[in-house]
């Protein structure tokens, strides 16, 4: 029971932050960062939340079956923009692979050289 309270507590904290600050960040992400922080600080032990966390993350794909089915409610909207959706998503995914891969690789190549020259801002 304790683990459920911890997970939901983190989520509720996230909801509260969003409610109070009008922050455009999903409450669940704030909850996730809070949980990481609590683990890092040692306030929550990893054994305490290990069980529920494994259950939730391993079954994550199942939880998005219902939202996937909800797509049927929007068929008309989607049919109207079918090609832009497909082409944009696929082309953009290819770009993400290339950009991320090259950038990360660049750092590994440069590791032996001086790190001062690297501008982390990009």
């Amino acid at each position: 029971m304790k683990q459920v309270v911890i997970i939901l507590g983190c989520l509720l904290f996230g909801e509260l932050v969003v409610y109070l600050t009008d922050f455009k960040l999903p409450s669940s992400i704030i909850g996730m960062l809070l949980l990481t922080l609590l683990l890092q600080l040692g306030w929550v032990k990893i054994v305490t939340v290990k069980g529920i966390s494994n259950f939730l993350t391993q079954n994550m794909t199942f939880f998005f079956v219902p939202p996937g089915v909800a797509i049927m409610l929007y068929l008309e909207v989607i049919q109207a923009s079918f090609w832009p959706i497909i082409v944009a998503s696929i082309a953009s995914t290819i770009l993400v692979f290339i950009f991320t891969g090259w950038t990360h690789q660049l750092f590994i190549d440069n590791k032996k050289k001086t790190q001062k020259e690297i501008d982390p801002k990009v």
Partner: peptide
């Protein structure tokens, strides 16, 4: 079922 999505993201804090 959809409700569990949010707690599942929170649980990603462990990995």
């Amino acid at each position: 079922i959809e409700f569990f999505l949010k707690p599942a993201i929170v649980a990603l804090g462990v990995p």
